[in-house]
Write a protein that binds this DNA or RNA. Structure first.
Lengths: 233, 233
DNA sequence: AATATATTGTCTCATTTTGTGGCAATAAAT
DNA sequence: ATTTATTGCCACAAAATGAGACAATATATT
């Protein structure tokens, strides 16, 4: 068994956009009714970032994705040994076996942006489901995970302008309306269509492609894609 | 001796403004020529935030200060056991005694904003000096501390608008010019006097006090102080 | 006492950005 | 051919910002 750094964990808030709602991936543990963020531990010999992206890939099947650390939660009382005991016993582990899991953990939180349709969520051995949940209708989460999700959303809002969230939450081609909807669900407010369009086009980051004929009785919108970035960093 | 969480440390980038330059506090370790950020470890029973503010207070004497976590550095190779060995042996510790210090550490980085004149830097037992160094002229730092400082500065810049850095880096009363200088050193660029003044006053966060007579042959500027915030959060 | 000097507070006008509504140009249904 | 919903784009208004000008000082110098 891999040897992990004790007392250190990570949690990932993985955002997806299904066309109308912002969602995140949650695990449900066997026979416990407990929901949690996908997370994991850090092998002794592995970089933190690397562990996290490896872990997220294992859960989602996605390799290249936007993944950024945003905060480390380090209160003593964030641990809840009783939750962990329920999960372990419900899965047939004796509490002795997993005693190191009952201890205090500091958790480094990351958020990821991902194209909803690309994901093939894969539950691990302890959890019997991993599914999308709309950010507005989350079930009760274990430990301090609700707090972590809120902090992730705040960070995402703050980074919206600089990080061009749409780039990661949408498919390669998209309409202006879809992009606007992404902005709206993240910001939690309606935006003015003309102003939004002018602003985004003014950034000179989009490339206009062919039109998309939807079969609906109105003018067909253009599709856009993000221009390759001149150079990052 | 206190029992600490293994493999977990914190480092603090403590910013001060001496009237013209942005500076940070650095430790110099006995007989080693090694400079480092003030840092420490987390007692098993203590909240992360609490450990850090306690540690910063011990180093600076300052109790109430702006202190915010900004990133956790978790690469395997950020540790440099040779540096640590030099520090320990130069201080008369055998390497065996301090072996846990030679291991891999994840470090949670904080930055603090502080009124330069309030600080009474106090070296600890391992370091023979703690002093201010201008951000532009830092000595070579141990481990990845240069990277940490750069990240702190980036964060500070990004938070300048929202966090009103001036509030914490200046004395209670200050002139508009002093506030502008704080902005200028943080942003690393000159700002236009009239525009800056109009913008800041437009925010409606300053209270105008009496004039400050400097003894210089020109109009005396008003002093300002920050209004108490209606409510934080 | 009058003048010179450096800096401040404020105003004005030009420029840029953003808010707001309007309108012609469609795809497809009727 | 007409209707319907939506899009792309333009025009004008309002607000924010850039850039400079200028009068109002504190004190030093004449």
């Amino acid at each position: 068994m891999t040897d992990y750094l004790p007392h250190i964990a990570y949690d990932a808030v993985i955002f997806g956009f299904n066309g109308s709602q912002l969602k995140i991936l949650l695990l449900e543990y066997h026979n416990t009714g407990l929901y949690a963020l996908p997370g994991g531990f850090i092998p002794r010999g592995e970089d933190l970032d690397h562990s996290v992206s490896r872990g997220v890939k294992a859960r989602t099947g996605i390799d290249q994705l936007f993944l950024e650390q945003f905060y480390t939660f380090g209160d003593v009382r964030r641990a809840s040994p009783d939750h962990m005991k329920r999960i372990l016993t419900a899965n047939g582990y004796s509490v002795d076996e997993g005693y190191w899991l009952l201890d205090r953990f500091i958790s480094i939180a990351y958020y990821a942006l991902i194209n909803y349709d690309d994901v093939k969520p894969e539950p691990d051995s302890l959890s019997d489901s991993i599914n999308w949940y709309a950010i507005e209708e989350l079930p009760e989460l274990m430990m301090d995970h609700t707090k972590i999700v809120k902090a992730a959303l705040r960070t995402l809002r703050g980074n919206l302008e600089t990080h061009l969230a749409g780039r990661n939450l949408l498919a390669r081609k998209f309409t202006m309306r879809q992009l606007q909807q992404v902005y709206e669900v993240i910001l939690g407010e309606k935006l003015r269509r003309t102003t939004f369009q002018r602003k985004i086009l003014g950034l000179d980051i989009l490339e206009r492609m062919e039109k998309q004929f939807s079969g609906k009785p109105h003018k067909a919108p253009y599709l856009y894609s993000f221009k390759p970035r001149p150079m990052d960093r």
